[in-house]
């Protein structure tokens, strides 16, 4: 390939790439230079991704990530009482999930999501102090209600357990009795076999 065709290939390729990609850039973002149209990043992107992962599946990795992201946010917003309280609620929920894992209350995921959505709304919309508190109170009320239902579930489960639970001593006695019975049955069988043998001889 000579120098002229080299240059022609290079140019054709370059033009084609510009054509394909530039056209698309202007279609979508209204600008021609894709790398210049930088969207502002959201401060809760990491936490959002952790919330969605946790909603998808409760795994050790997802829970750890969620707790880590929540702690990062707590640190970042430690000067703001409203934000801090939101993140404390999320952290408490994260720790609860960590402890309970797959046995966590089925409403946990929804509560994490709604608390996250409320804190995002507070950050994004620049609400006044009173409105912020309203949203926070809403999240706190939901959290308290959730806590109460978790406790009620625990209380309900506890008496059932004690009703059906058998004391260890009883189990030991039953097992001993069963052992003795089997032993005596065996002795009887041995005696019977010996008797049959004798008769055959």
């Amino acid at each position: 390939m000579d120098a002229n065709s080299d240059a022609s290939f290079r140019d054709t390729l370059k033009n084609r790439l510009d054509e394909v990609f530039q056209e698309e850039s202007s279609d979508i973002q209204g600008g021609n230079k894709e790398d210049e149209s930088v969207k502002a990043s959201h401060p809760l992107d990491g936490l959002k991704s952790a919330v969605l992962s946790l909603e998808w599946e409760i795994t050790q990795e997802n829970v750890h990530r969620f707790i880590k992201e929540t702690k990062d946010c707590l640190k970042r917003y430690e000067g703001d009482k409203v934000f801090s309280t939101f993140f404390q609620v999320l952290l408490a929920l994260g720790k609860y999930v960590h402890k309970s894992m797959k046995n966590a209350h089925p409403a946990t995921g929804a509560l994490i999501k709604s608390t996250f959505e409320n804190v995002t709304a507070v950050i994004d919309t620049g609400l006044g102090e009173e409105e912020k508190r309203k949203l926070l109170n809403k999240s706190l009320a939901a959290f308290r209600q959730f806590k109460a239902s978790v406790l009620a579930k625990k209380r309900k489960a506890a008496p059932e357990a004690s009703e059906t639970a058998v004391p260890e001593k009883t189990i030991k006695t039953v097992l001993m009795e069963l052992g003795n019975r089997i032993e005596s049955e065996l002795e009887k069988m041995k005696a019977e076999i010996a008797d049959i043998k004798r008769k055959l001889d």
């Binding site: 990609f21 894709e34 990043s41």
Partner: peptide, 13 residues
């Protein structure tokens, strides 16, 4: 920043 799309197309080009 792939999340924001910054320089994703430039890299590909």
């Amino acid at each position: 920043s792939a999340l924001e799309g910054k320089n994703v197309i430039k890299t590909l080009k």
